[in-house]
Design a protein around this nucleic acid. Structure first.
Length: 542
RNA sequence: GCCCCCGUAGCUCAGAAGGAUAGAGCGGCGGUUUCCUAAACCGCAGGCCAGAGGUUCGAAUCCUCUCGGGGGCACCA
């Protein structure tokens, strides 16, 4: 993914390096500090807390240290307006540097935002991983939006990410599905059937049964049902524009060498023991879990956890540097045991991250949509795509931190207008597309634009915001929180709409118009790249 | 009972490696269009960051406790 030509080193990275150099030369020490977007644009573009950090080490006044650093930093021509306020070192990026960024975008719009933060780190990103026993549901849609977007963003930042869906196509739930289908087949054929107590009630079980009868299928109805549902889930994801790199089947894991390998490894570390009733347990408490976990039940049946652990060993075997799992809200109690397992198998759990995609409440008419899984009354991911569309659905999931509960207002997601952030952002893109067409007819174009003519304060704010796009993507990669990008785009669109209203872009002054078109083109490119990274389309016309 | 997440404007949520006057959207109220897309813009109102202690130059942010909401505590997955 990394091409030297296409990826400029970020300005922020260059400033960081400059600060580190000064630190070494002047004080001969290293300290951790941050360099971040200034809280308030009036302070500058970037801020560092370096003086505070040094003050502690050197037992000196932060302002004094700030001055010392500032005097060296003034040599660095990309910066200007270096100032110290209350111990913070602030500076602005020179207009010239901002202009250069617009030039970069013009040269290669689709590459803007790329960086090499990941340095090729190999990441396995597992998400959705639903049982093939029914339709995908809302929380799957949330995980899919987050996972797919993270993958795209991290790849943009120089990671090598593979997305993976673990299919639990074996075990007791599948057995239950098989019995449910069999019962429905009997029922449809007018035979006496006894539907399992806790069977799958959904209408789709009838569909599967019908299909089996129609096709004269003689094999295992359980396997037929699994294949059917797996294809169904895949087509749902496709409509949502999510495509997985890998599907790993539990049935395959069961037959592979990994269960045995897992057992042997744990055994060799003395981490297994048998209870009197014959159950085999893993001493996960050694690694901080609440209790030891059963790998093989007293009846000889292995647990889900055992195969899941074996599956994670398979991931380790494929030499990923980092493993990221996105789980549903009902799995968070599962984290300590998986962590313990990975540690026991020799994986550095610093590089194992679990995101819990929290519960989603659907809101219709200011009330929660009630669902009953037992009665088969569920609002599925298909229903959501049908009702609000993939763009709005994906964007809404990405405006919140992964970790917090989310109220999804169906009416708002369908609204066309300011109220709905998706359309608001898309509109900025369409607006600029149309503007560029209009300008073209007059013989104007961004190619002829000189950034130096962008002297309005709003123009500087926009350039500054554009500059912060790659930084935002890096933040997402670091924190695994794609909502940072959604919010960034909202702010960018807001700045542009406001600018557009205030300042006429295409005027009789061709030079100035071209400069403004250059800036507009920059905004358009960032919006487009940003939306694409969120899996949302950027329309040319609305 | 134990564990996890959460409690910030009327509503939905940002802000959490401690830092500069606490932000946004929606909703509410009031304005803007002979002019490049009004699917837009501008203005106003709205807060004891659940509460109480503590840590220090400084706390929405860290620690302890209390209250309130959600979820998890299987030889289910």
């Amino acid at each position: 993914m990394y091409h030297d030509g296409a990826i400029m080193r970020l300005l922020r990275e260059r400033i960081e390096e400059e600060l580190t150099n000064i630190l070494g030369k002047k004080y001969g020490i290293r300290v951790d500090f941050f360099l971040e977007e200034s809280k308030d644009e009036s302070f500058g573009d970037y801020t560092t807390n370096l003086p505070f950090k040094l003050a502690k080490e050197l037992k000196k006044d932060p302002s004094e240290i700030g001055e010392e650093i500032a005097s060296d930093l003034r040599e660095f021509t990309a910066l200007e307006n270096i100032s110290i306020k209350k111990g913070f070192l602030n500076f602005r990026v020179s207009l010239r540097s901002l202009n250069e960024i617009l030039g970069e975008i013009l040269a290669s719009p689709e590459d803007f935002g790329k960086s090499n933060l990941g340095k090729g780190t190999k990441v396995n990103l597992e998400f959705v991983s639903a049982n093939p026993t029914g339709p995908l549901v809302i929380v799957n849609a949330r995980a899919a939006a987050v996972g797919d977007s993270l993958k795209k963003i991290m790849n943009f930042c120089g990671f090598f990410v593979e997305s993976e869906f673990y299919v639990n196509d074996a075990g007791t739930q599948i057995e239950k599905l098989r019995r449910s289908v069999e019962a429905r087949i009997m029922e449809l054929q007018g035979l006496k059937s006894d539907f399992p107590e806790d069977g799958y009630q959904g209408e789709y079980v009838y569909d599967i049964a019908k299909k089996i009868i129609e096709d004269n299928f003689n094999g295992d109805p359980g396997q037929f049902a699994v294949d059917y549902i797996h294809q169904w889930q895949k087509s749902t994801l496709e409509r949502y524009r999510v495509k997985f790199d890998n599907f790993v089947f539990e049935s395959w894991i069961r037959k592979s060498e990994y269960p045995e390998k897992t057992k042997k490894t744990l055994e060799s570390h003395g981490l297994l023991y048998k209870e009197e009733n014959g159950a085999l347990l893993f001493k996960s408490t050694v690694f901080g879990d609440d209790k030891d976990r059963v790998l093989i039940r007293s009846n000889g049946e292995p647990t889900y956890f055992f195969f899941d652990l074996a599956y994670h060993l398979y991931k380790m075997d494929r030499k990923y540097n980092v493993l990221v799992d996105i789980w549903g809200p009902d799995h968070h109690g599962y984290i300590p045991r998986m962590k313990a397992g990975l540690e026991a198998l020799g994986f550095d759990t610093e590089n194992f991250k679990v995101l819990v995609a929290q519960q989603v409440n659907l809101i219709r008419d200011h009330e929660k949509v009630k669902m009953s899984k037992r009665k088969g009354e569920i609002y599925s991911m298909d229903d959501l795509i049908e009702e609000v569309g993939s763009d709005a659905a994906r964007f809404f999931f990405l405006t919140r931190t992964v970790n917090s509960h989310l109220d999804f207002d169906l009416a708002l997601a369908k609204t066309i207008g300011v109220q709905n952030p998706v359309y608001y952002i898309q509109y900025s893109h369409a607006r600029i597309a149309s503007l560029l067409d209009f300008a073209k007819e007059k013989g104007y174009s961004p190619e002829g634009g000189k950034g130096s003519l962008l002297t309005e304060p709003e123009e500087r704010s926009l350039m500054r915001k554009i500059m912060l796009f790659p930084d935002t993507l890096q933040s997402v990669s670091r924190t695994l929180e794609p909502h940072l990008l959604a919010r960034y785009l909202l702010e960018l669109a807001e700045l542009y709409h406001s600018y557009y209203q205030k300042v006429r872009i295409v005027t009789e002054d061709k030079e100035r118009s071209n400069a403004r078109l250059l800036l507009s083109f920059g905004v358009k490119s960032v919006v487009k790249n940003g939306l694409n990274l969120l899996g949302v389309q950027a329309p040319e016309r609305m």
